[in-house]
Amino acid sequence: MGKRFNELSDKHIHFISEQKLFFVGTATADSRVNISPKGMDSLRVLSPNRVAWLNTTGSGNETSAHIQQAPRMTILFCAFDGTPLILRLYGTAKVVHQYDPEWDDLFTRFKPLPGARQIFDVEVDLVQTSCGMAVPYFSYTGERELLSDWAEKQGEQGLWDYWTKNNQTSIDGITTHILEKGD
């Protein structure tokens, strides 16, 4: 059943590369727990103990706010077809904003996505697998282009205005620092 590993194996990395969807979980000591579904080919394995994912504009910015106060992050993948498997990555995350020195190096590892607002750089300290036998089968039929289309339509200033209005604090009032260096 469940197994623990100190790092990602080649088999784990291959499994991750096949997934179209993953989930990210974060919380501070006093905030609501946030679990977000992610896709859009936005995650990269950088080493057996490091992953990064390119975060695009959303209705909120909970993950960023949480990570800046409590850098714990869990990333969950589950097989919706083929052999059942759940794969969890536990680690310490760091938010990399567009104004941070690390941005350019990390951003080049991704296909550019409209509305990209930050990258989460995660040092993985525990990899856990479990059976996944209760996860139902789902068929992948394609990507939704709605968010990319919306972000392209907004343009740089429109995204900045949206971040100003909607992405500066979490639902619990924790700051995200998304605009600090650009003010």
Rank of each mutant, 00 (worst) to 15 (best):
L147K: 13
D125P: 00
A29W: 08
V127P: 03
G142H: 04
I35C: 15
A52Y: 00
H66L: 04
E143V: 11
K3M: 13
N55Q: 07
F80I: 12
A151V: 04
P84A: 01
V135N: 05
L76H: 01
D81G: 12
F120P: 07
E7S: 11
V124C: 03
G60A: 09
N49L: 03
S59N: 11
R109H: 12
K3I: 10
A65G: 14
T74M: 13
T83A: 14
M40T: 14
R44G: 05
S17H: 13
T164W: 07
G60F: 09
Y140R: 05
E180A: 10
F5M: 12
I86R: 06
E18V: 00
A93I: 06
G132L: 08
D183P: 08
T57R: 10
L8H: 03
K181N: 08
L85F: 03
M1T: 12
L126V: 15
V127E: 02
Y90F: 10
D183C: 07
M73Y: 04
E180D: 12
A27H: 05
F110H: 07
D105Q: 13
Q128M: 15
L106I: 02
V135G: 01
Y137F: 13
S59V: 13
I178W: 05
I178L: 15
A70V: 12
C131P: 06
G158N: 07
H12P: 06
F22H: 03
N34Y: 11
G158R: 02
G58E: 02
V122P: 03
Y140P: 00
I16E: 00
Q68R: 15
Q168N: 04
D172F: 03
P112I: 06
A27S: 09
L46Q: 02
D81R: 13
R144W: 11
G25I: 06
L87F: 02
F110P: 03
Y162V: 04
T26L: 05
N55G: 10
W53Q: 04
G82E: 02
R72C: 08
I16H: 00
M133F: 15
A93F: 04
T74I: 13
S42G: 11
P84E: 03
I75P: 04
N61L: 00
Q98H: 12
N166E: 14
W103I: 00
L89Y: 02
A116D: 12
Y140E: 10
I13L: 01
W103T: 07
L85A: 11
E102W: 04
R117Q: 12
N6D: 15
K111Y: 08
D172I: 01
K165H: 10
D161C: 00
E143D: 14
I174W: 13
Q154T: 00
K11T: 14
L8G: 01
Q168F: 01
T28E: 02
I86F: 07
H12K: 04
P136I: 01
K111S: 11
V33G: 10
F15Q: 01
F15S: 05
E102D: 15
R144G: 13
R44V: 15
